[in-house]
Structures are given as structure tokens and as C-alpha cells.
Design a protein around this nucleic acid. Structure first.
Lengths: 348, 348
DNA sequence: CTGAAAGCGCTTACAG
DNA sequence: CTGAAAGCGCTTACAG
């Protein structure tokens, strides 16, 4: 039983309590808490002691109401692959935490007008200060137009080439896909198949472009039979690979536009008794967790997903605080060699 | 150019604007928005028309400040397996959205006192109304004590047997593990190994108990060599399985306490050239996404992770609104048979 | 069924 | 360097 163990114990301390305890005006407490200048060091210390003693934590809602800022950032994503999404979440979450903003997740599913309405309803209801758009939402002209009309700042992760003043972070999808294809060519492969990513994703087209460019620069004829449409999900990779491996002259290497589809490709190979990598090399893209838990582990492109998301959040916060849109950020990828690729051993 | 296309366009409408437009007091607007009784239907309609016309969305911070509620729920989790975490997120998110609460995610990493401090700092800074504890945090006596002292309501997902009045959701881990073990016994296996989950998780102990109980009821002697410690992560399953498969008399079946470790077990079998399921049956637990993307697909226990989390959020919201702690909820599991288990074909 | 007043706990704008 | 006043946009408590 302490001296102040009375009924007031349950009520949270407010700025008034702190001001009274420190013998200053609430404005001074506010200055100390927000690191504003013009506070004498001795006064500052007195305030800090009172804050500590009263276990004071400023009310976010009072602060928001008075400052006309919610300190809330929204992260909107569609969810093609859970492996990818969780990294996107982590990156944005980390940056928001550092900046004392809170991150609100909003998973969407629809398309077109309905999707735009969904995003705008989320923004309206939560009164978020800004939004982070993960792909493929980062490419939606319709959403971008609606956000502009609404005057809501946003940052984009891996957007398409649409010109817009809002900040974004991206990587060189085309260059990375080209690099991977050239790596397979370097292993001696000539019959290299490609599984395209989800239609409508800018990255899908870029990766296909890189694949084609590598073939061309090595004078390997493009074979439409070796290119299949997927959607970034495991099942689509499984299905596409089943078809590819059933071709009369089957490919000796399959490059899937992401790791989930590459994992599906491995399963098709297992089903059909095709040895990886002895009879078939398989490559993915992302370096997601799944690339290390399949057999054999996948050769892939390490896409800096966490960093892309962190950077997008960083740019958004900077633009909110400065008012001017910062320059876009381009991050580097890396080819990771694992056991799923190799030179041909038993070509049939 | 509409008639009201002047500078006021950027300012958001407030409750005062709506009241003025509808010719009522703000209290009446508040009644309509919160579905309170005692509003004439005609008045109600007038208000709704004004809300629509002004595109009015109530300010969450003003509402929070006045009502002394943040309408914020925290979800705190440690992250042993990404596959599990994303389902936990989804379940809680879905329920909060329905209840017009916002969900704040907080991933923690530490342990002991530091961990408790981390959780409490999160609660203090955000002023959340309640907290959802995912395992193994749902078992921490220290955190529970701190939350009690703080007077913060919380719900637990799959907690241990600690008696506490706070609501929780769980499943029968012991029964499920027993069922899986008996299924393996039914296939003719006698040398059944078990890989234990992360130490300190209540579920880990319960699943081990179920495994032992099944052996006992079928009069199969318990062999300590066949039981290995894991931590729910892929690598620990890989390592444990490598050891098990290197035993002079190796097991014919391995039951891992979760899917990630079972996936690691499959990789060890691949590495060592042990055919699954012909020479070795492998079973997991969770029915996470990974159970369908490995080769062969895993026989596992479908743990209703999403529903457990949804239920915990549901119980928390109910207890916040009613003030009385609702009854705990127990959810059902299901054994999912896939290709990773079978009768022995080529015992060596 | 409806409303006027007070107040939630901060920041902004201003004064000294 | 410090502070008094006003106000952000709602809900609570009360009155009629």
C-alpha cells in the first residue's frame, strides 16, 4: 500500500497532471515532449521527472485532433503470395515504428471500380495521413486518380512507368530476369522455358522482357511453346510446368517469374519423375522463404522486398513532413545460386 | 465546375456541417450515426442525406477523445513461423473490421522482463483498448500479470492451463496429436519418431503427450531415441530428421509437431535418398500453406488458426462491450491425409 | 424525440 | 524562455 493508493490510481495521467506536478504550463510540457526548442534545461528536467513519476503517455487521439493529423499510415495490398506480403508488411511496419506513426493494414481483393471504392472507403474511415500501395495496386491509374482527387499523399512500391510526382521504390526487374536467363544459358541450356507472372503486374511484363532480351543477345530463337501464363500462385506454376514437361521436346530449364510458381514447377517435376537439376533446372524469383524449404532449394533472384517496402514508407513519411516529394529509390537485386539449377547430366 | 467549387473544398466536413445542413443539433447527428434510439424516421433521413451529400466521415480521434476509447486493438505475436502468423493476422483483422475496431500489429522478439516491457510500452503508447495474445505470449504469466495490473483487457489464443478470467480460444492439441499417431499406427508403423515443438509452448507439450498416449494405448514401447527437440522452424526439423534417419534402426514414420518442421523432415529424407512415403512416412501439424507446396504434400492436422484468432478477437470485443468476460471457445481440428504418409513398401 | 452545454487532452497561434 | 486562450470534433450527462 503506497501513499497514493487511492481511487485516482486507475485514471491515466494527462498533460495537466504533468504540468501541475512540474509547476509549468501545459505548453511547456508539450514543448519538452515534442523536442521543441526554447526550454531551459532545468525546466526540461523537471518536466521529464514528472512524466516519469506519473507514468505519463500522451493521448494519440488528443494529439491527432489538435494537430489535424492522424499519425496513421495505411498499407494496401492484394495478396498474390503470402511469402511476399509478410515481407512487405515488415518493412513498412519497421519504418512507421521508427517515425512514431502507426501502420494500418488493409488487404483488398476486388478489381476495377469496386477496388478503388474499397481503398477510398478505408482512407475515409480511418482518416489516415498517407498510403502505401503495394503491387499491383501501385500500378492502378484509377486508384492513383482517386487519391489525387482526395488529396491524399501516397508512395508506391515497385510501380509501373506511369509518370506521377508521388515517391516510389523499385528494382530492375528486367535486368534481373535477363541475368537469370543468361546464367541458365551459361550452364549450357538452350531450351529455356518461362512462366509469366500475374497479368496486369508491371513486373510480370518486365521479367518477360528480360528473359526475351537474354535469348536474343545469345541468338537463341524465341519459342512461344516455352512461354506459359501463370499468376504468381503455386498452383499456376504447377499447371504450367505440367504442360511444359509434357511437350514432345521438353525444356531443359524452367525459369518461373516468382518462387511460388517455381515451387509448383518442382512439384510437377517430382510428379513426372523428372530429376532436378540433372534433367531439369528450375529457377525462381524473390528469394522468399519458400525458396529454401522446397527440394532442391531454389536458385532465385533476391528481391529486396523488405527494403522496398521500408523505402516506400520512408519516402512517404519524408514527404509528409517536408511537403515536397522525395526522389524515387532504386534497390539492387542479387542472383542466389542453389541446388535447383545445374548443367545437364542425363538429357533424355 | 460545380456551384460549391470554392476553397472550402479541401476541408473535411465535420459534424457541425452536417448538423447545419440537416437543420438539427449535432447530438442528433451523433444519434443517427451511432444507431441510437429516439430519432424520428424523417429526421434520420434528413441527416443521412446531409451525410451523403457532404461525404462526411466522423473523425476517429474526436470520437476517441470524447468517448475515452481508442477503438484500437493490439495483436502481439512472436514469429516462430510466418505461415502461422499470417493466418493469425487475418482472423483478428477480419473480426476487428466487422466491429469497426482497428487492429495494430506488434511483433516482438525478446523474452522475460524485456519482452513484458516491450508489450507494455506498446500498450501505453498506442492507448489500445484491448490486446490479443498469440502463442507463446498467451502463456506468459509475467505479461498476464502486467496487463492485469494495468487493467488492460485481453484475450488469449491457444493458452496454457493457467487459470485466468480473461477469454480465450483453443483446440485439443493433445487429442489431435494422438489421432495422428494412431493414424500412423493404423498404417502399420511401429517405429514412429516425434519432433517436439518450441520449448515453452504449451502446445508443444500437449502434442508430445498425445503422441505418448497413442503409443501407450497400443502397447508400443516409448523410445527416447525417437524423440527430438525442435523449435517449430524449418531448420530444426531438418536437423532433427537428419539425426533420426542416421540411427542404426531408423524410424519408419516421423511425426513433426508442425508443418515447417515436417517440411524440413522431407528435405532431410530427400538429401539422404529416403523415399517418402515408401520408406518413410512424414506427418505435420497446422495445415499451413507449406504443407501443400512441398513434395510430397503433407499429411497434417488442420488447425483452425484463422478461426482461433477470429474467435479470440470476437471474445475480446464482446468483453469490451459487455464488460463481462465471455466463455472460452474450443474449436475442432481435422486430420488431412495427403501423399506423405502410407504403408511401408520397401523397408530396408 | 431533441438539443445546449461541458469537456475529453492535446496543439496552434499569439503575446510577452 | 514561458504561458493563457482558443479550438480541434466528437460524446457524455443532463434537461426538457
Amino acid at each position: 500500500m503506497t501513499a497514493d493508493n487511492d481511487k485516482t490510481r486507475t485514471r491515466k495521467a494527462s498533460i495537466d497532471d504533468v504540468a501541475k506536478a512540474a509547476g509549468v504550463a501545459i505548453k511547456t510540457v508539450s514543448r519538452v515532449l515534442n523536442n521543441e526548442p526554447n526550454v531551459r534545461e532545468e525546466t526540461r528536467q523537471r518536466v521529464l521527472v514528472a512524466v516519469k513519476r506519473l507514468n505519463y503517455h500522451p493521448s494519440p487521439s488528443a494529439r491527432s485532433l489538435a494537430s489535424r493529423r492522424s499519425y496513421l499510415i495505411g498499407l494496401v495490398y492484394d495478396n498474390p503470395s503470402g511469402n511476399y506480403t509478410i515481407e512487405v508488411q515488415r518493412g513498412a511496419l519497421a519504418r512507421c515504428r521508427e517515425g512514431k506513426f502507426l501502420l494500418l493494414l488493409h488487404e483488398v481483393t476486388g478489381a476495377g471500380e469496386e477496388l478503388t471504392q474499397d481503398v477510398m472507403a478505408f482512407a475515409n474511415q480511418t482518416h489516415i495521413d498517407g498510403l502505401i500501395l503495394a503491387p499491383p495496386l501501385s500500378e492502378s491509374e484509377e486508384i492513383i486518380r482517386a487519391l489525387d482527387e482526395h488529396g491524399l499523399p501516397f508512395a508506391r512500391i515497385a510501380p509501373n512507368d506511369l509518370k506521377h510526382r508521388s515517391p516510389y521504390s523499385d528494382m530492375d526487374d528486367e535486368g534481373a530476369a535477363r541475368e537469370m536467363t543468361e546464367y541458365l544459358i551459361g550452364l549450357g541450356h538452350r531450351r529455356i522455358a518461362f512462366i509469366i507472372g500475374r497479368p496486369g503486374h508491371y513486373a510480370s511484363g518486365q521479367r518477360l522482357k528480360g528473359y526475351k532480351a537474354a535469348l536474343k543477345s545469345h541468338k537463341i530463337a524465341f519459342n512461344a511453346d516455352y512461354v506459359r501464363q501463370g499468376d504468381f500462385l503455386f498452383d499456376s506454376g504447377l499447371e504450367a510446368a505440367r504442360q511444359l514437361l509434357a511437350l514432345p521436346t521438353r525444356p531443359t530449364a524452367i525459369f518461373a517469374a516468382n518462387d511460388d510458381m517455381a515451387a509448383g514447377t518442382l512439384m510437377a517435376a517430382h510428379e513426372m519423375g523428372v530429376a532436378v537439376p540433372d534433367q531439369l533446372s528450375v529457377a525462381g524469383f524473390d528469394d522468399a522463404a519458400i525458396s529454401r524449404t522446397v527440394w532442391p532449394p531454389l536458385t532465385t533472384i533476391s528481391q529486396p522486398t523488405y527494403q522496398l517496402s521500408y523505402a516506400a514508407a520512408d519516402l512517404l513519411l519524408k514527404s509528409l513532413l517536408s511537403g515536397t516529394p522525395p526522389k524515387p529509390v532504386r534497390l539492387l537485386h542479387k542472383l542466389i545460386r542453389r541446388a535447383s539449377t545445374g548443367v545437364l547430366r542425363n538429357p533424355d
